[in-house]
Amino acid sequence: MDEIKEKWNVLEWRNIYRGVLMGVSNIIPGVSAGTIALVLGIYDQLIVSISDFFSAKWRQTLGFLVPLGIGIVGAIVAFGGLITWLLTNHEQPTQFFFLGLIIGVIPLLFKQSDMKEKFTIAHYSVLGVTGILIGFLGFMNPDAAAVVHELTLLNGVWFFVAGWIASMSLLLPGISGALVLILFGVYYTAMSAISTLDFAVISVIGAGVVVGFVVSSKFIKYLLNHFPYMTYAAIIGLLLGSLIIVYPGFSAGPAAIFPSIITFIAGTATAILLGARNTNV
């Protein structure tokens, strides 16, 4: 009993609120949960923990991952409808908040990567190419509005692959899981499955996410350990490219502009303050 209590106390309960922020971001097209992890100062620990969870060290990761997972899953279930409503009725201010959040975290990445001292022409080339490739996604407008209600072998495989690729949004800042699902034509089906508790569709997409975690986390951990500056260059490029995806444009009139300016300032300030706080912890 004492051992159980000790393990229970080891759980990092503040990761629940971190998970909530990551979960909310992951259901917004263009916004990456990995970006939120960077803002919160837990990105490196997240990659290591997910990678180690699928190894003999899995028990050591539970204190970090269990509360984080509770927050992420809880936020997706609880706020899926709210986020859909905000994006439908107040898209511009909502997107400008996340635009500010991304811009606010970029200076922190410049500092962490020691960009001025360590980056060479090769690093800047990777940064530029990555940013351009991600930015091109912003000009793609696939028809993902159709909702699939009947699960078949063919669309089941497609959902699994979409979940696999979308799982990288938790691991790579700048890549949005929701955007990946849109590009695969699965986003509205996934949101409908969450709201109606369609466990068949949720299970297939979720299985893809889990498999994606196993493969991607170990690969990214390897890159961070062996090519840290090149990896940081790619991450910065991902974030810069995602600005094009998140930017919603400006609607005329003070009723649209003023709230967007306020949310943009709030997003930027949130990223800077949280980044500074978590860097000093």
Rank of each mutant, 00 (worst) to 15 (best):
S251Q: 09
G253Q: 03
A33W: 04
F54I: 06
S25T: 09
I76R: 13
G267F: 08
T279S: 08
F227I: 09
F136W: 11
V204S: 03
M140Y: 02
A256P: 01
V24S: 15
D198A: 04
N278R: 06
L38H: 01
V10C: 03
G23P: 14
L46T: 04
A122R: 10
L223Q: 07
A252D: 10
V246M: 12
S25C: 15
V211R: 04
T196W: 03
L109Q: 05
F160Q: 01
A56L: 13
G206A: 07
I83P: 11
N89D: 12
G177E: 11
I272Q: 03
V281H: 04
I47L: 14
W13L: 09
F98W: 10
M191H: 09
S169Y: 05
I134A: 00
I220N: 01
S113W: 00
L108Q: 05
H123V: 04
S242P: 09
V20A: 10
G177N: 11
G81I: 02
T152M: 05
F136N: 00
L273E: 02
W8E: 03
L171S: 10
I262F: 14
S169V: 12
S216T: 12
L65H: 03
G41T: 02
I4R: 09
L170D: 07
F64R: 05
G23R: 13
V157S: 08
F97Y: 10
P93Q: 07
F199R: 00
D2L: 11
G135D: 00
G206H: 01
A255W: 03
L65F: 07
Q92W: 13
R59D: 10
I262H: 07
I134L: 09
G208C: 00
L224H: 11
I102A: 04
I194H: 02
G69L: 15
G275R: 04
Y43N: 07
F250Q: 07
L46Q: 06
T61M: 12
W8M: 14
R14M: 06
